[in-house]
Design a protein around this nucleic acid. Sequence first.
DNA 1: TGACATACCTGTATCAGCTAGGTATAATAA
DNA 2: TTATTATACCTAGCTGATACAGGTATGTCA
Lengths: 114, 114
Amino acid sequence: MQVDKSLMTGSTVMLVLSLLSQREMYGYEMIAELARRSEDTFQLREGTLYPILHTLEADKCVTAREKAAGNGRTRRYYRITRRGRKLLEEKQAEWKFFTDKVEQVVFGTSPSPA
Amino acid sequence: MQVDKSLMTGSTVMLVLSLLSQREMYGYEMIAELARRSEDTFQLREGTLYPILHTLEADKCVTAREKAAGNGRTRRYYRITRRGRKLLEEKQAEWKFFTDKVEQVVFGTSPSPA
DNA sequence: TGACATACCTGTATCAGCTAGGTATAATAA
DNA sequence: TTATTATACCTAGCTGATACAGGTATGTCA
């Protein structure tokens, strides 16, 4: 199923931080991993991801280090910081709150218990 | 709780159609009703809603009729069409699909059963 | 030699939603 | 009386998140 890209707006940073909360990763890898885990629903563009990573780094939510890959290329690995984990927790809480409210309005449901 | 407005992107039309799927409503009322049902989480702006309503009308997803209100003002009531209901169903399916995928990635959960 | 995958980067375009302005009437407050 | 607030509609232009489309560079495979 194809989903309207505009739905992604606002949750991309959370998705990226989620990946990094599990292990160190480099940009190109994140795009592939996100596609894999979502069964190709999230096909993040490089033009979207790299600027986000740079902003997260500037905000000290992630740190980066260059590392030579076996194939002669240099990868830039990103690692989440304590501050980044805090941001992720906030984004997750915000997301749950938001989706509960949407479902409340659209499906007439009550918020699901935590 | 305040949520990042950019999360709303892509779901606004679904929210509006959801309201209209239950009863005929006028613009100003929809804004209040959306705020009420979401406990003030969704504070839609007139500059957002009216253009959406005009587009939905042009696309024959809603019809409109003027009606004098008791207070001397004229209200523009919107009613959802068959085509509008179809669009709503699509948006709802898309939304559930999308949120399932996000939770799959972020919380490591499996899609919830329908 | 040329295409493709890997791996990074960025300037500009796009588009949803917001800002900030407009019109107009009626009720309430100063 | 005048100002403010609430109701009720509208729209031109701005903002900001994401996409597009281009760039750089190396290695592999046909």
